[in-house]
Amino acid sequence: MKPYLISIAVGLLVGLLYSLLGVRSPAPPAIALLGLLGMLLGEQVVPIAKRMTSGHEVASFVRNDCAEHVLGLPVKAKEQPEDRA
């Protein structure tokens, strides 16, 4: 949750700066962002349908794999072997 809060805070700060400078933001309008959300959700329909038809468990797949893809959750850091010099 912390990266999302930092992201929104920095976005607000940049928006304020743009306003003070009198320039328009290059960000897409909200309707375009909703379209992107629809695309992310739509990508998950086929994998979910395949799991449902094959009898595999769907809820944990949606919670883990789909949520990570749609929400852009940080990838869990893999443990790296210690560097030996």
Score class of each variant (00 low, 15 high):
residue 6 I to V: 12
residue 17 L to V: 13
residue 81 P to H: 12
residue 72 G to M: 14
residue 44 Q to N: 14
residue 27 A to H: 09
residue 44 Q to E: 15
residue 11 G to S: 13
residue 51 R to C: 01
residue 16 L to V: 10
residue 48 I to C: 11
residue 7 S to N: 12
residue 74 P to C: 08
residue 49 A to K: 08
residue 6 I to H: 13
residue 23 V to R: 10
residue 28 P to Q: 02
residue 9 A to D: 01
residue 25 S to Q: 01
residue 55 G to P: 03
residue 16 L to G: 11
residue 80 Q to L: 10
residue 78 K to E: 07
residue 11 G to V: 05
residue 39 M to V: 13
residue 84 R to H: 04
residue 9 A to W: 00
residue 42 G to I: 08
residue 80 Q to W: 06
residue 64 N to M: 09
residue 27 A to Q: 06
residue 73 L to Y: 11
residue 14 V to A: 13
residue 70 V to I: 03
residue 21 L to Q: 11
residue 8 I to A: 05
residue 19 S to L: 10
residue 65 D to T: 04
residue 24 R to E: 08
residue 81 P to E: 15
residue 47 P to S: 07
residue 19 S to P: 05
residue 61 F to G: 00
residue 28 P to A: 06
residue 45 V to T: 06
residue 35 G to A: 10
residue 37 L to G: 11
residue 31 I to E: 15
residue 17 L to T: 08
residue 50 K to F: 10
residue 7 S to K: 00
residue 31 I to N: 07
residue 22 G to A: 03
residue 25 S to V: 04
residue 25 S to P: 05
residue 42 G to E: 04
residue 59 A to T: 01
residue 55 G to D: 04
residue 12 L to Y: 11
residue 26 P to Q: 09
residue 25 S to W: 06
residue 76 K to N: 06
residue 45 V to P: 01
residue 76 K to C: 06
residue 22 G to D: 00
residue 23 V to E: 02
residue 40 L to F: 03
residue 57 E to Y: 08
residue 83 D to T: 13
residue 65 D to R: 05
residue 8 I to F: 04
residue 60 S to W: 02
residue 82 E to S: 11
residue 68 E to A: 04
residue 59 A to Q: 10
residue 42 G to N: 06
residue 62 V to L: 12
residue 62 V to S: 12
residue 6 I to Q: 08
residue 3 P to K: 11
residue 69 H to Q: 15
residue 74 P to A: 14
residue 9 A to F: 01
residue 69 H to C: 09
residue 31 I to G: 07
residue 73 L to Q: 15
residue 67 A to Q: 07
residue 33 L to P: 02
residue 16 L to C: 09
residue 2 K to A: 13
residue 16 L to F: 13
residue 60 S to A: 02
residue 47 P to T: 07
residue 7 S to A: 13
residue 5 L to G: 03
residue 32 A to W: 01
residue 34 L to V: 14
residue 44 Q to G: 10
residue 8 I to P: 01
residue 65 D to S: 05
residue 52 M to G: 02
residue 14 V to S: 02
residue 41 L to K: 04
residue 70 V to Y: 03
residue 7 S to R: 07
residue 67 A to C: 03
residue 56 H to E: 14
residue 1 M to E: 05
residue 75 V to F: 11
residue 31 I to V: 12
residue 84 R to S: 11
residue 27 A to C: 12
residue 32 A to Q: 04
residue 63 R to P: 00
residue 14 V to H: 02
residue 34 L to P: 01
residue 63 R to I: 08
residue 39 M to H: 03
residue 75 V to S: 09
residue 52 M to P: 05
residue 83 D to V: 15
residue 81 P to K: 14
residue 52 M to N: 06
residue 18 Y to A: 03
residue 45 V to H: 03
residue 7 S to F: 08
residue 46 V to Q: 10
residue 2 K to H: 10
residue 35 G to M: 07
residue 36 L to W: 14
residue 53 T to C: 03
residue 58 V to Q: 07
residue 38 G to Y: 06
residue 78 K to I: 02
residue 42 G to S: 11
residue 84 R to P: 04
residue 56 H to M: 07
residue 61 F to T: 01
residue 80 Q to G: 05
residue 55 G to M: 04
residue 3 P to C: 02
residue 64 N to P: 00
residue 65 D to K: 04
residue 26 P to A: 02
residue 39 M to G: 09
residue 65 D to V: 01
residue 60 S to Q: 04
residue 41 L to F: 09
residue 49 A to G: 10
residue 46 V to I: 14
